[in-house]
Design a protein around this nucleic acid. Structure first.
Lengths: 196, 196
DNA sequence: TATCTAATTAGGAGTATATCGAAATACAAT
DNA sequence: ATTGTATTTCGATATACTCCTAATTAGATA
């Protein structure tokens, strides 16, 4: 989990509460003590104190002491900086980073575990998504750049599964391989080799 | 409660969850089915389905149907629009609007209820904040623009509380009134009249 | 020192949310 | 039609959160 995830979660969790949002709105306009906020929001002091603690922890509210009163107000700089950081994490180029800790290959491994045994395709998945995984695994057995005749291709496919005819067609349909005047070749592919 | 509050709350609540954030990150990079997401996040399908429902409701994820699979991906436009709307609500000029439903006068009324009876100040609050409220109430008895001699001022203050000396000094200190060469006048003030 | 005021902390009750297993639904393929 | 696959809905449980009352702490005043 990248460090931004913690910040993001704290930000959203803290602001995901109506009373805390109202507090922030109030403290943007005037400096308040706990008792005053409690009156304005129709809450008890301990509740307000708790919410203020969270807002302060997040860094969007500051406190100063005046006699017995603890006076709170919005932290303009803190809120601005946080907003910027959060917004940039939600930008299109950045939002993918939220999945940084995710092991993308577990899904494909799982599918291959079920439908492939060694070099052999035990069964062709019915669902589209899973079928794609197996097709990619199959396509990975052909070298990019090399050219195959149809009979050569069929023979190679048949080593993995008897229905070379359907598989050849689907490899073409999914643009994992291409054909021109009876000659086949593999199209470039971004997927790493995950042979079981 | 202004309409923005609902949107804001829905936005923060929906994004205040680690698994939903990860989903958004994954769906920003690839189109996924429920089962695939469940594998990647180590959750069960019903849980993922529930989370996807909330993300879709918020408008940051879209779905298309391919055979039996429901394929989800991030809604680029939806996320961008929402982010903008939320961020602008957190801008300094806007954030005060979060407190639109708040009745700001309840606090001062409450203080005055306790410390003022009719025209008379029953007791001077010890705390700073409450003392300010009573001082403002007192200052409100003097017309802006009119000039008072010290003896005149003292007499008027004494009608509300015997300790005209302290009160006169504090009115000056808090810049509710001003003095020059023995003449006093009230400084402009933004507070409405809340005489009990 | 004793007392008063304001805030915080501790502990508990009620509510909402996350997650799961089981059952129901939608859709394809045989 | 029946079977199989992917998803969704339903119901239950466990966890997290909000809010309260009661007790404690910190600071100011008499």
């Amino acid at each position: 989990m990248q460090p931004e995830m913690d910040t993001l979660l704290q930000f959203f969790k803290t602001l995901a509460n109506e009373n805390r949002l109202k507090m922030l709105g109030i403290l943007a306009e005037r400096e308040c003590g706990v008792e005053e906020l409690a009156t304005l929001l129709d809450l008890k002091a301990p509740t307000v104190s708790h919410h203020l603690g969270r807002l302060r922890e997040l860094g969007v509210v500051t406190m100063r002491v005046e006699g017995n009163d603890h006076l709170f107000r919005m932290d303009v700089d803190g809120l601005r900086d946080l907003s910027r950081r959060v917004l940039s994490s939600l930008k299109l180029e950045q939002v993918g980073a939220l999945a940084d800790g995710v092991a993308y290959d577990t899904w494909e491994r799982k599918v291959l575990d079920v439908f492939v045994e060694g070099d052999e395709i035990k069964a062709l998945p019915a669902g589209y998504k899973k079928r794609l995984v197996v097709l990619r695994w199959l396509a990975n057995h052909f070298e990019p750049g090399r050219r195959y005749s149809e009979s050569e291709l069929d023979a190679l496919i048949e080593r993995h599964h008897p229905d070379y005819c359907s598989l050849r067609r689907e490899l073409i349909e999914e643009h994992m391989m291409a054909r021109e005047s009876g000659v086949y070749w593999r199209l470039p592919w971004q997927m790493p080799d995950l042979t079981t």
